[in-house]
């Protein structure tokens, strides 16, 4: 189908019913209804970094997701993705290329390791590209507001005026 595209979709843990229940619970009334589902792009990287300890060097595995639209890096729990056919018009297009994302991932991981391990050092961070993955968000209308619900965590975020 030309209107569909196969993407690597991060395995979700919330159904539309779960998402509705979350928003209704927060709103305090049965006022929410599903508008649509959208798919947000992230570049996925895995890296094995080295952390020296007083008792030897420890390898640390790290996952990193780079926001395909905003270039924001983030460490991540292990990502499990599956190929899925989804409607093209529900997929946000990535604005950055893999090379830019790789640089963001490397810089972010070094920054995070330095901060968390509280040391100055070279962590030999070499991210390996795992490809572009997408995360599904439920868009739910709640009276005059559109709410975006993360299909993995159930966390929500209201959308701005333009979306409403």
């Amino acid at each position: 189908m030309s209107d569909c595209k196969s993407i690597a979709l991060i395995r979700e843990s919330l159904s539309s019913v779960d998402a509705l229940r979350i928003v209704n619970a927060v709103a305090g009334a049965e006022v929410a209804r599903i508008e649509r589902r959208i798919y947000y792009p992230y570049f996925h990287f895995s890296a094995v970094c080295s952390a020296r300890t007083l008792f030897g060097t420890k390898p640390i595995s790290a996952s990193c997701l780079v926001d395909g639209c905003n270039e924001a890096g983030a460490t991540a729990d292990p990502v499990v993705a599956e190929q899925s056919e989804v409607a093209r018009d529900a997929i946000l297009r990535s604005k950055i290329d893999a090379r830019t994302a790789m640089n963001v991932a490397r810089r972010f991981l070094i920054h995070t390791l330095g901060r968390r391990l509280r040391t100055i050092g070279n962590f030999n961070v070499n991210p390996e590209a795992q490809g572009l993955v997408h995360k599904a968000f439920w868009l739910i209308r709640c009276e005059d507001t559109v709410v975006m619900v993360d299909s993995l965590t159930g966390c929500l975020h209201t959308l701005g005026k333009r979306a409403a």
């Binding site: 959208i38 947000y40 926001d67 639209c69 905003n70 924001a72 946000l92 968000f137 868009l139 559109v146 975006m148 975020h157 209201t158 959308l159 701005g160 333009r162 979306a163």
Partner: peptide, 10 residues
């Protein structure tokens, strides 16, 4: 960041 981009898309 995601909400901002989704809002722009919509």
């Amino acid at each position: 960041p995601e909400a901002a981009e989704v809002g722009r898309m919509l």
